[in-house]
Amino acid sequence: MLVQLLIDSFSIGSFYALVALGFSLIFGVTHAFNLAHGELILLSGYLAYTLGKHFNIPFVCTLPVCMLALVFVAMLLHQLLRRVKEPFELNSLVVTFGLALLLQNAMLYGFSADYRLIPLAPVPTLDFPRLHVFITKPQLTLVGLSLLVTASIYLLWRKTFLGKALRATIQDREAARLAGINVEHMSLIAFILGGMLIGLAGPLYAQREYLHPFGGMEATLIGIIITIFAGVGRIRGILLGGWILGGVESTTVFFLGASWRELVSALVLIILVIARPAGVLTKGARSAKR
């Protein structure tokens, strides 16, 4: 039972990480606090739903289409936020909140208030009867995809000049500009990468949860919480943060009951923010000051 709990925790944690990656990346590089993150995920989910339902396109094939479409949407969002005046963080919050409302109503008009979900094909399960453990295909997909995406971004981050430039922009925009990095260009790239990740998360969200025009807030909250867990711009931290949150939630529900889930998660978040203000992978409060 405990092994199964661990597998479930990794699965839900990986899902959280996939949902949060786009938000974290855009926020890290551009400081744009995107409150429409959840709505963009839903938009991608609705696109995958429409492609599957009305054009009979297999789920796997909808993923690249959604990623491409959301790159386009993210570029539009970048153009919109470029016009936002200082204080940028606060104003971007207001603009994206307005955008979230706009998208909610557009989705209500386009897709009605009915709940939608992308159906799962008959699910093959890996059974280990002696251990009383099983792993479903969606669980494997989530863990595999989250590892793949995190590893890809990590390699981009660490092994390419573009990654170094992006990291430099996250650390200090002015210093990066003085070092000759085109910060505006980096912002656009962050939005393109973020759009791809949001485009990937949307169909998975529609398959694992459900689509509703006003259901984006949950995804936005996941993005914000995991970014706080991980620390800004820390890609490995996002996956670890997702796993920690998934583990805390699953263990709490199993041992204490479902009504304790939010309380215990909030407590862990508060403790982490106090003990590791710069993120879960940093070494204590001192690292934040440096």
Binding site: L5, D8, E218, R261
Partner: peptide, 9 residues
């Protein structure tokens, strides 16, 4: 609530 897997355990 987005996940019931622990409850179902």
């Amino acid at each position: 609530t987005l996940d019931f897997s622990s409850f179902l355990l």
